[in-house]
Design a protein around this nucleic acid. Structure first.
Lengths: 347, 347
DNA sequence: CTGTTAGCGCTTTCAT
DNA sequence: ATGAAAGCGCTAACAG
């Protein structure tokens, strides 16, 4: 028995009043018999006004349900109180936690967050950033397709911080690649692997650094490394790589990310292979589904959430958002079931 | 070249000028010797100005790299060109396709999208909506924790459309529950199941409707149904439910969503059970990892992306964003490997 | 400590 | 077709 909307709103302000117009500082100024500028001061510069009147003003504001209009405030100050996070692909689970981390510190600071997707295209990214610049106080750029120079140029208008990839001219927050990749390669080597493939993503900056580092590490440990290219960081692209992985004869693969690794696992299972006997797989990121995979994915756990929070913290801080810096967060290897000794070696 | 610089006919703005300040309509007005209001008209009201001057103005604007300041525009018009999407939990993969769908139509329309998380708490949701109202042209509310009356009240300030759950007083875009659940129950019944559990999420509106419908459907098909409560729509919560599922003696379970189903699968595997022999599982949503699970998850494929696009389309449309309506999108059963005949029945 | 006075950049009558 | 002028709601000197 749902009580049928007895159409009566006795206490509440009626439609006219509510939807009429949001109260402004003029309304509250008039109500307390003071000047609008005094109201503005009372509400925003604590202490710079008489305690009694401040109290009176706050009371009136509360009573009227006053909320400052962010647009009106942005005009004279140039600050909008909103920040943007621009990333290649919203649906990539890797970005979930990062966005959430950023969103939380933004909200905690009373800021709002705009999310914008660039479809992994450099020109759309540039256009997006330029379009956003007039309405935000700063941008968080994730896995940018733009090079350092371009980003630095853009950053002259509004501060930009790079998250999850490093841009030398900007403040950047990144995972400790050396730490993670060293652990991964050592793990493989300890298991007995001597020939591994890196499943990478073309010329992307973030990918190049992973590849270079992996190469150095492998060579110094007498492991031969081949690069196999996938054309997007997706499950399907990973699945497509199976043939080439098998053809290469490697006993282990390091995937660009967990999505690619997932694809490889799926394709392998589809082909009747059992892992890690056929070959070992190490992912990257440790997205939520990594532990759900069968075999559960051994992967590098990237502190996405913290990358998001740290990046947003530095973006919000006027002292730090303009000076190049580098925050490096730990990248740990999580060993699960997708890695094992290569077949042919004694157990 | 020209020795006489007094005429001040600069070639291109140099770096200083560029990064100094964004050009305004005043800059371009001065440059072409016209009034700012004419510039405004030329740029925004096609046709309401002389074709030649409009051309001249556009050229100057392009040359200066002019971009209208959204804040300044918002003040007199009351329209900011931004919309907000507010949802309980950003990290739930279910919401990502939805966000992306909404983001794409917003961007295509030249609007920007603000994303805000409510931590699945009604009071935070209300506060978030109220805070956002002064700076957006409308809100997309996903899986709201607020009831219809509250939402309707809030919607008097700025249009609100409900996505993925229905609010009778608002325009809503939802999946066809009846269609999906009927297919799910029929599938189970055809397989021979007569006793199933619904793994639901407390008093959440969206959950209640699923439960009611499932109950009706089950009864009319002579299937006994029990409800087992999980306290959050997460993998861990799903895993926690395993004991109760086993204790209930059912041969199949309908999970609130794929995350919960994933948890159940994981726990079952951990307990040494093999599915679907021990029991069948049907998920909800069809998130990307559903097909990656082992056994691959049979689930109801929710058109999240389209829910996002349709919802944003109606939100953008001034004709439709104020009138209650209901857009119902198909919800299809995707049969994979997590459902099978109950043991004891002839193959 | 509070009031006055200008704007911020843009839109929008109302004149011309 | 274009110009002049008055705001939108708020902040920020500068006075008093």
């Amino acid at each position: 028995m749902s009580p049928d909307e007895t159409h009566a709103s006795p206490e509440l302000p009626n439609d006219e009043e509510r939807s009429a117009r949001r109260p402004t500082i003029y309304d509250i100024a008039q109500r307390v018999g003071l000047n609008p500028s005094t109201v503005s001061r009372a509400l925003n510069k604590p202490g710079r006004t008489n305690a009694a009147t401040e109290e009176k003003i706050r009371a009136a504001a509360a009573e009227l349900g006053y909320r400052a209009n962010p647009m009106a405030r942005a005009l004279p100050t140039g600050r909008s109180g909103t920040f943007a996070i621009v990333l290649p692909d919203i649906t990539n689970p890797v970005h979930f936690e990062l966005i959430r981390g950023a969103e939380q510190v933004a909200r905690a600071g009373g800021f709002t967050l705009v999310v914008s997707e660039t479809e992994a295209a450099a020109d759309i990214e540039r256009e997006t950033i330029e379009a956003l610049q007039s309405s935000v106080d700063g941008l968080l750029v994730v896995a940018s397709r733009l090079d350092d120079a371009a980003l630095a140029d853009l950053a002259r208008v509004k501060p930009i911080v790079a998250a999850n990839h490093s841009a030398p001219s900007l403040p950047s927050v990144i995972p400790d690649l050396a730490m993670g990749l060293t652990a991964a390669i050592d793990h493989l080597r300890d298991l007995g692997h001597r020939s591994v493939a890196y499943l990478g993503l073309g010329g992307l900056q973030i990918n190049r650094s992973r590849w270079e580092l992996t190469l150095d590490l492998s060579m110094s440990r007498d492991i031969s490394l081949v690069e196999i290219a996938v054309d997007s960081p997706t499950v399907d692209a990973g699945a497509d790589a199976l043939r080439r992985v098998r053809a290469s004869g490697v006993t282990a693969v390091l995937a660009y990310n967990d999505l690619v690794a997932h694809g490889l696992l799926r394709a392998a299972r589809g082909a009747g292979l059992t892992l890690p006997e056929a070959f070992s797989v190490i992912g990257f990121d440790d997205i939520f589904s990594a532990e759900l995979a069968v075999p559960a994915l051994t992967t590098l756990h990237s502190p996405l959430r913290e990358i998001g929070t740290r990046a947003m913290e530095t973006l919000i801080d006027p002292e730090r958002n303009r000076v190049p810096s580098k925050v490096v967060l730990p990248l740990d290897l999580v060993v699960r079931e997708s890695t094992g000794r290569p077949v042919g070696l004694p157990q």
